[in-house]
């Protein structure tokens, strides 16, 4: 009987040892994959924009650092009355990067701004009538293709899909975003 127990003990011990080894090996594999994944993870703060609920979040190390209500693209379509030009005011989805940070930005109005107001479109791109130093607020973060994160003259409209594609913030949130985010930081829009 004692011999039988001893044989049983040896068998179980053998299984135990095998399991321990495979547990350690799995643990080592997991650590290696986690390390490889962490190399991909963004170390700098990044912006996440939810266009469906008009929320902007600043994340760092998978934690929300700051949260703000913003306004994003209306999705509306504007047609040029004479020409066949057509503009759709969507905030584009996907990964963007902050291309440039600007203080006291001056908005060089594009064609659609004049079409929308029913005024004559200036012929030259540098004409004085195109320049608007007040609309964008104190700061702007340029994302490329004419899209920016900037201020607003109408804070009561934040939280709504009313813009021409840019992301609008109130003065305090814009100042904090400008301070926390650097050129090259990522902006995820969905």
């Amino acid at each position: 009987m004692a011999v039988l127990h001893f044989i049983l003990f040896l068998s179980i011990q053998n299984i135990f040892a095998t399991e321990i080894v495979s547990q350690e090996s799995l643990q080592a594999d997991i650590e290696a994959i986690e390390k490889a994944l962490s190399k991909h993870r963004e170390q700098n703060p990044y912006i996440v924009i939810d266009t469906q609920h008009n929320k902007l979040q600043i994340w760092q190390n998978n934690q929300i650092v700051h949260q703000a209500i913003c306004a994003t693209g209306s999705g509306k379509v504007l047609l040029h009355p004479q020409k066949s030009n057509r503009w759709q005011f969507n905030t584009p989805r996907g990964l963007w990067h902050v291309q440039k940070k600007v203080t006291d930005p001056i908005w060089a109005k594009p064609q659609w701004a004049f079409v929308e107001n029913g005024t004559e479109i200036p012929r030259l791109p540098w004409e004085f009538r195109r320049l608007d130093p007040t609309t964008l607020g104190a700061y702007a973060l340029e994302l490329g293709d004419g899209y920016e994160i900037h201020g607003t003259l109408y804070p009561s409209l934040l939280g709504k899909n009313i813009t021409h594609g840019c992301i609008r913030l109130n003065d305090e949130d814009l100042a904090l975003t400008y301070q926390l985010i650097d050129t090259g930081n990522r902006v995820y829009i969905y």
Binding site: L8, I12, Q13, Q23, L26
Partner: peptide, 18 residues
């Protein structure tokens, strides 16, 4: 032996999780 067997089962569950 019984205790050892319980440990084996416990480790097996952990291994599945891992």
């Amino acid at each position: 032996n019984i205790l050892l067997l319980i440990s084996v089962f416990s480790i097996s569950a952990d291994i599945n999780t891992l």
